[in-house]
């Protein structure tokens, strides 16, 4: 990570409720109106090297999609900055760079149903002058073939394609902008298992052939493990642990990261195996009122007085590199390495 290509610097995002006139009057008159803001992302710093794939995992509401959209320049952070190769991705609230593109979860919602596939793919490159109008057709054909579609399908509409093919179209649209970075938000979540494998293989191929830098967001830990070089685990708007893929999966040090990995069901292929479902006590607290200190402390079996007061920052993991935000990081046995005090 000597060379930091994409950098997020203490990025935060708060969603403030937009109060209507009626609500504001009601609030004045003393009624209870929701005025708290959602802390979707809270001072996250990240650096991604050129050609690296960073996996971003976490449960619903942890802020992974918001962080992905901030990185892609789709939404502006409330605080902090995103830079690519030293240049800000956004300025004055507008995205300035075309070098970061995004692939979304649902290919049924992300493609305009009234545009032909060729138009969908050519729209961005034409607007930004990446290709002259006369060359658009062959340009589109090239990218369609790159993602495993036939060039003659460019005349068709999105509804004439299956889910997996539509996701290929969405990938082709992003690639046609010739980006350096691709942010993929749950790109295989809505696909069937056999189709999922096809798209995962496509990403593997693109990474090998185009050396593209990628942020891959998913709740499916096995998919992320398969594709990412490094993995960051998020909980309630913060990164709790980040590290090289294998060490993070084999020896997570943050109690949440460990519990999350433990709760993934594994394929049982031996007769008589009794699976223990290891669960995390309680549920994710509301991002309207995140707990003070470490945000995982109310659910953490190892929380001490410290954890309830001061949020731990990211510090070096004990083994295998990476960082963990925890006062009581776990050892291989799942017990804290240091004594808990308090």
């Amino acid at each position: 990570m000597s060379e930091c290509f994409l950098r997020l610097e203490r990025v935060s995002k708060r969603f403030e409720p937009r109060l209507s006139l009626g609500d504001r009057i009601a609030a004045r008159l003393g009624a209870t109106v929701e005025t708290r803001s959602v802390h979707a992302v809270d001072e996250v710093s990240l650096a991604v090297a050129r050609g690296e794939t960073l996996g971003l995992v976490g449960e619903s509401g942890c802020g992974k999609s918001t962080l992905g959209r901030i990185a892609a320049g789709i939404i502006a952070p409330s605080q902090g900055e995103v830079t690519l190769d030293g240049e800000p991705v956004m300025s004055e609230g507008r995205k300035r760079s075309t070098r970061i593109q995004m692939v979304f979860q649902d290919p049924f919602a992300s493609l305009d149903p009234r545009m032909r596939v060729g138009e969908i793919i050519a729209e961005g490159p034409l607007y930004h002058g990446l290709v002259p109008a006369v060359g658009a057709r062959s340009y589109v054909a090239r990218w369609m073939e790159r993602v495993g579609l036939h060039a003659e399908q460019a005349e068709r509409f999105p509804h004439q394609f299956s889910g997996g093919q539509r996701q290929r179209i969405a990938v082709a649209r992003a690639l046609a902008m010739q980006p350096d970075v691709l942010v993929c938000d749950e790109p295989v979540a809505s696909l069937d298992v056999s189709i999922q494998a096809q798209i995962i293989n496509l990403f593997l191929e693109l990474r090998r052939d185009l050396a593209i830098t990628c942020i891959f967001i998913s709740h499916d830990l096995s998919v992320v493990r398969h594709l990412a070089d490094r993995i960051a685990v998020m909980y309630l708007g913060r990164i709790v642990e980040i590290g090289p893929r294998d060490v993070l999966y084999e020896q997570p040090e943050h109690p949440y990261a460990r519990a999350l990995l433990d709760s993934v069901p594994r394929l049982v292929t031996r007769t008589g195996t009794r699976v223990e479902f290891r669960t995390i006590a309680g549920e994710i607290p509301s991002p309207l009122e995140p707990p003070a200190g470490c945000r995982f402390n109310p659910r953490c079996p190892f929380a001490s007085a410290d954890c309830r007061i001061r949020p731990p920052g990211l510090m070096a993991r004990h083994v295998g590199g990476g960082e963990v935000a925890c006062y009581h990081p776990l050892g291989e046995d799942g017990q804290p390495l240091r004594e808990c005090v308090g």
Partner: peptide
């Protein structure tokens, strides 16, 4: 068999998955 082979959990990370 094809379903099982296409699961990322059944392959080594980074390996091309056997797809149906």
């Amino acid at each position: 068999d094809g379903l099982l082979a296409s699961l990322p959990a059944n392959a080594r990370p980074g390996e091309v998955l056997r797809q149906i």
